[in-house]
Amino acid sequence: MNGIHLPRWLTDTLYATIGILFCGFALKGFLVPNSFFDGGVTGISLLLHELYHFNIAFVIMLANVPFIIMGAYQQGRTFAIKTSIAVLGLGLCLYFIDYPQITSDKLLVSIFGGVFMGIGVGLAIRGGCALDGIEVLALYTGKRVSFTISEIILGINIIIFLIAAFELGLPTALYSILTYYAASRTITFVIEGLEEYTGVTIISGQSELIKEKLVMDLGRGITIYKGERGFLKDSFDVSQPVDIVFTVVTRLELRRLNNIVRRIDPKAFVFTSVIKEAAGGVLKARARH
C-alpha cells in the first residue's frame, strides 16, 4: 500500500512554517532575553538589537533584504520569493507571538537556544527557503575571491563574535560561539537526518558472495568496478582480477554491512566516504534542500 504523498508546495509550506515557529521560540525564549548571539545574519540582527535596542522583528527582516536580493541572482526568483515570505513570517512571529523566557542558565541557553534555532533553520532549508542569508552571501562572495564558502562564513562569524566580545564581554561571546556550534550541528542533522548516506567500497577475493549478500540480505543496489588485486612488496608481479564492489547505505545500515563483509572475508579491504546528495536507483526519495 502506497503512502500518502502531499503536494510539494504543501510540504514546503509545512516545513517553513514549523521552522519559523522554532526560530521564534529559540530567539524569544532563549537568546534575546539573555543577550546571546548566533552566527550569520541572525547574529548580526541580535547584535544590532542588543547595541541599539531596535525591535528584533524589524531588524531581522531588514538585515535579510540584501541577501534575498543576492539569492534572486544566485538561486533564482522562486528561492528569493519563498525566502522573502519566510523572513516576513519570522518577523511577524517575533512581533506578535509572546514566547515565554525558558531559562536564564547560560549553559542551557547556549546549547538549547542553538538547538532550537538549528531545528528551525534546517526545516526552512528543507522547505526550499532560508531564514539566514549568510550562505547566500558566501556563495556570492566566493565567486569573486579565492576563499571557500566555509572560510567566508567563518570569517564573518569571527567578526560578529569579536564585536560581541568587545561590546558585551568575552563570556557572552564564548557562550554565543557554543550557541552557533549547537545550531550548525543541528542544521546538518535536520537536513541530512539519520539517513545521511555513506558510500562503501569493498575489495575482496570473495566478491561474488559479498555481492549476493548485499543485494539479497541487505537489499542494497551495487555497482561493480573491474580491477586487479595483489601487487605486494614481495610479489609485485603477482596479481589477479577482482570485482570492486561499491554500494550506498545509511549510517544505520553501515554496521550491519561491515558485519556481513567480515563474516565472509575478515581480510576484505573496506573504506567509506560521506555522500552529501544521493537519489534515484533503489534509494528512497530524499527531502529537497
Results as ranks from 00 to 15, higher is better:
T186H: 09
T198I: 09
L154K: 00
L154H: 01
S150K: 06
Y181V: 02
T186Q: 05
F189T: 04
E167Y: 04
N157T: 09
I152Y: 10
E195W: 03
Y197G: 05
I158W: 07
I152V: 11
S150E: 15
F166W: 14
I177C: 02
I163K: 06
P171D: 07
F189S: 10
L154M: 14
F166E: 07
I152L: 14
L168A: 08
T188E: 15
I163Y: 04
E167D: 03
E192K: 08
R185I: 13
G155M: 11
F147D: 03
E167N: 01
L178G: 01
V190S: 06
S176F: 00
V190F: 08
Y175L: 08
G193Q: 08
A173V: 00
Y180M: 13
P171A: 09
E167A: 14
S176M: 04
Y180F: 14
E195M: 05
I149S: 04
I149G: 05
E151M: 10
L194Q: 13
L168N: 04
E151D: 14
G193C: 06
T186A: 07
V190T: 04
T198G: 01
I158N: 03
E196M: 11
Y181N: 01
E167K: 15
G193M: 03
L194R: 10
L178P: 00
N157E: 06
I149Q: 11
E196V: 04
S150M: 11
N157P: 10
T198S: 11
I163E: 03
I160W: 09
I149H: 05
V190G: 01
L162M: 14
E195L: 05
F147K: 14
R185S: 13
T148A: 07
Y175A: 07
F147Y: 13
T172K: 10
L162E: 07
E192D: 13
I149V: 13
I149K: 14
T198R: 07
A173H: 03
L162Y: 07
I149T: 13
A182Y: 11
L168P: 05
S184K: 06
I187G: 08
I163A: 12
G169Y: 01
A164T: 06
I187W: 08
I156R: 01
T188G: 11
A183D: 09
L154T: 09
L168Y: 04
A165F: 02
T186Y: 04
G155R: 05
E192M: 08
I152T: 06
T179D: 05
G155D: 02
V190R: 09
G193Y: 12
T172G: 01
A183R: 01
S184A: 11
R185A: 12
T148K: 13
L174G: 00
I187N: 10
I153R: 07
Y181I: 14
A164L: 02
I156Q: 10
